[in-house]
Design a protein around this nucleic acid. Structure first.
Lengths: 153, 153
DNA sequence: AGATCAATATAGCATATGCTATATTTATTT
DNA sequence: AAATAAATATAGCATATGCTATATTGATCT
C-alpha cells in the first residue's frame, strides 16, 4: 500500500530521491568500466605524439602496471576496434580509437584547467583530473568550460 | 646514461611530466578500489537514518545490483571492520564504518553543492557527484568548499 | 652469423565484482 | 500451527584487472 504522501508540485526535493541515486550509482559503475579503455587510448595517443610510437613497455611504465597487464588490455582494445597491432610491433589507434583519444584529451584538459581556475594547485589538479574526467557529464563539462572561460577575463 | 637536459628552475611544465601522470593513474586506480566500500557504507548509513535498518534487499535495490552481490560485499566489509551483522538480520555500521560514512557523506555533499553552485542542474549534479566524490583530493575539496561558500553571498 | 639484450606473448594465479539458481531461515498470513 | 511469502545464504559461473614466471621473437652488437 502506498503511503499517502503530500504532493509538492514545486521544489521537489530530489536530494534524496532513491530512484535518482540508483541511477547515479549505475552511471558511476558504468563509467568505471570505460575508464581504463579511455586511459589507454589517451596514453597511446600521447606516446605516439611524443615519440612516434607506443610500445607496451612504455605504456606499462606510464600506467605503473606490469607489461602482461598491458598486453591483455591491448588485445581487448583490438577487439573493441580502438587499436591495431602487428605482433611484436608497436600499437596504433584506429580511427575510432583516435576519436576517443581526442574526446578524452579534451575532457581531461577541461577538467584540469578548471581545477586550476578555482585555485587547485597544478600538480593536484593533474592528479585529480585523471580520476574526475571519467565522471563528468556533458552538462558538468560545459559548466566547467564556462567557468574557466569567464575566469580568463 | 642521463640526457643532458636544460635545467629550468622556474616554470616547470608539469602538464606532461610522465612521473606525475603515472602517479595520477595509480591514484585513480587506488580510488577505484575504495569507491565501492564507501558507497556501501554511505548507503547503509542513509538507510538506517531513513528507516532504522539496512536490509540487503534495500541496499541491492538502491545500488541497482543483485542481492547476492550485496551479501558478498557485506562479508568483505565485515572483514574490513566497517560493518556488523547477525545472520538473517539487518546490517549495522561499526564505529569506523560510521566515521567513513560521515566522511563520505560530507564529500558527497560538498561536491554536489559545488556543482549546483557553478550552474549544473541538480539532477545532473547528483548523478555526477556520485562518481566524482571518490576522486577529489582534500585540496580540491577545499577549493570546492571555498567556492560554494563565496557563492552564497 | 652468432651471441646477447630487449620487447612481446603466453600461461597460470589471485582478487574483485557482476550474475543466476537454489537452499535456508525468518516473517507473515490464514 | 501450518502454509506461504520474503529475506538471506551459498554455490557456481563469468568477466575484468592486477601479478609473476617464462617462452618466443626482434633488435643490436661483436
Amino acid at each position: 500500500m502506498k503511503k499517502n504522501v503530500a504532493i509538492r508540485p514545486q521544489e521537489p526535493d530530489l536530494s534524496n530521491d532513491p530512484a535518482l541515486r540508483t541511477e547515479a550509482f549505475q552511471q558511476a559503475r558504468e563509467a568505471r568500466r570505460s575508464e581504463l579503455a579511455e586511459d589507454y587510448v589517451e596514453l597511446i595517443d600521447d606516446l605516439i605524439r611524443e615519440g612516434g610510437e607506443a610500445r607496451q613497455v612504455d605504456i606499462a611504465a606510464r600506467l605503473g602496471v606490469a607489461q602482461p597487464t598491458v598486453a591483455r588490455m591491448l588485445r581487448k582494445l583490438v577487439e573493441e576496434g580502438l587499436v591495431q597491432r602487428k605482433a611484436y610491433r608497436g600499437v596504433f589507434l584506429t580511427d575510432s580509437g583516435r576519436e576517443l583519444a581526442q574526446a578524452s584529451r579534451e575532457r581531461h584538459e577541461i577538467v584540469e584547467q578548471f581545477l586550476v581556475a578555482i585555485g587547485v594547485p597544478p600538480e593536484t589538479a593533474q592528479r585529480d583530473a585523471e580520476g574526475i574526467e571519467h565522471h563528468v557529464s556533458e552538462e558538468t563539462l560545459a559548466a566547467f568550460r564556462r567557468f574557466t572561460e569567464a575566469q580568463r577575463r
